[in-house]
Structure formats: C-alpha cells, structure tokens
C-alpha cells in the first residue's frame, strides 16, 4: 500500500526512475563498447589449458577474454575471411606463417607458446605397453586426420617410425581434429588412439597411456600470432607476453606440453 500512496502523492519518482533507468542503460551499453573482450581463437588441443590460463590473465589485467575453440584450419579460413579475432593460438606453425605472408597477422608477434606432446591412450586397457603388440592387437586405432591436424601428422610419423604405418593402415579411424579423436577413444569405440598428452592429463577417465618420445616425430610447435585487424593489438601482445612468462610456461608444461622451461 505504501507504493500506491507514493504514486498518488506525486509522479516524480516514476519519471526519475525512468530517467535513471535510461541513463544506466546507456552507461551499461557504453561500458560494453569500451570493455570489449579480447577474442582468442584457440586450437582444440589447447582448450583445457586455456580455460585455466584465461581467468588468471583476466584477474591480473581486468581485461575480459572471449575464447573460441576449434580446429586451426577452420580458424585460418575464418581469419582469412575477416573473423574478428585478436589472437590466434594455432596447433602448428604453418597456418600462422601463412597468415603473416598474406599480411593478415603481425610477423613480430609470432610466438611458439608450447610444443605438443603426443600420447598413445586407451580408455579400456590396463596398459598400452608393449606398444607394438597393443597396436597390432587393436581392432580400431584412432588418430587425428594427418592432412588437417598436426597431432595427426605426428601420429603418422610415429607409426612410420615404428614400421607399423602400412600394416595397420586398415585399422585407422580418423577424427577431424584431436578433440574428436579423443572422443573416439573416450567412448571406447577405438581401442587405442594417438591424442595430445594434455587431453589425457585433463580428462576424467584415465585408462592407460604411453608418452610418445619426441624423437619419434617432428616437433609439434604450436605458434600464436596477433591478427592485424585487431583493435586491441596492445592487449593482444600483452597476452602473448603473459603466455611466455616463466611461471605461465611452467603451468603450460604441467598441462602436458614441452616449453622453454624444463
């Protein structure tokens, strides 16, 4: 009843309420415009580390981050067609290099933020060793598409190094990216699979895994660049510097990558 009394007495409170609401609405909108998030395109294999690192950066700088996860190939195509990303964390070096050549990314910004580690993983076997036997006895072996995914290419090189590529070719099933490859092994539809060590370490079911020695394949150098069209180049560069900081590099290593910090 209080409320009705107030309105009867005078109408000013209602008007001022509208005024305040309008002003705060515009302040809210302009706030969004000023505090534009830093848009980062992240290769699938780095999904889980990035989800842990982004809040740290946000806390330190107050800068909001908006993450997109997907295959590097898709991001490459999207950036080529003007996707509004500020930073691109690729799973390889080739795509950032190409973007630089095309004048779409800043050359001086290119940074190898991590080196990927490949793992042979099974969700159902108690042990994946000896690997040759396990691979030979497996019905289906999951790898990422070697044509598209750097981890897939490394898996192919590893199998070739073990002289198992041609004998086992018929058992291979391919995920479009390393995330899908993980899914095939996770659901046990593939007995074993070559995935990123970082995925195995962050996953909830363990099964068993074997870390592939880095001598078995060419380095999976994961490289990041700042996109030329970015309106927040300063913040984007600061983010890459943040990724290369010793304490953060140490964290990245703990997620299953090789970094400049041993």
């Amino acid at each position: 009843m209080m409320f009705f009394d107030l309105r009867k007495r005078e109408r000013i409170p209602l008007y001022s309420f509208i005024k305040i609401a309008t002003i705060s609405f515009f302040m809210f909108c302009s706030g969004i415009i000023f505090a534009e998030p830093l848009r980062i395109a992240v290769a699938s294999n780095f999904t889980s580390p990035m989800q842990k690192l982004a809040p740290l950066f946000e806390k330190e700088t107050g800068q909001k981050i908006q993450l997109s996860f997907g295959s590097s190939g898709k991001f490459y195509a999207q950036i080529q067609h003007g996707a509004p990303f500020d930073v691109f964390l690729s799973a390889d070096q080739a795509k950032p290099n190409k973007l630089i050549q095309m004048g779409l990314a800043l050359k001086e910004s290119q940074t190898v933020y991590a080196k990927g580690t490949l793992a042979l993983w099974s969700a159902k076997l108690k042990s994946v060793e000896p690997i040759t036997n396990v691979l030979k006895n497996a019905r289906k072996i999951a790898i990422a598409n070697p044509k598209l995914a750097p981890y897939g290419k490394a898996a192919e090189e590893t199998l070739k190094k073990l002289n198992l590529w041609s004998p086992l070719k018929n058992k291979l099933v391919q995920g479009e990216n390393i995330g899908q490859t993980y899914q095939f092994v996770y659901t046990k539809n593939a007995d074993v699979g070559f995935v990123a060590l970082s995925q195995v370490l962050s996953g909830d079911i363990k099964g068993s895994f074997w870390t592939v020695p880095s001598s078995f394949h060419a380095d999976i150098k994961q490289s990041a660049v700042v996109i030329k069209k970015s309106k927040q180049k300063k913040m984007a560069t600061a983010f890459l510097a943040f990724l290369m900081r010793p304490d953060i590099q140490k964290k990245i290593a703990s997620f299953g990558y090789q970094t400049s910090i041993k």
Binding site: N145, K147, L148, V173, G175
Partner: peptide, 22 residues
C-alpha cells in the same frame, strides 16, 4: 564415421576435408 575412405568418407565429409585442408 571415422573418415575411412571407401567405407565412411561420404561426399559431404570429403568436401569438409578439402575445405579444412585449404
């Protein structure tokens, strides 16, 4: 599908692969 040629790699997946491989 698991993208196996002649078994599960249908046309739409083949196109997707071409696009992804640039």
């Amino acid at each position: 599908g698991g993208n196996i040629q002649g078994e599960t790699r249908v046309l739409s997946v083949q196109i997707y692969d071409h696009v992804e491989a640039l």
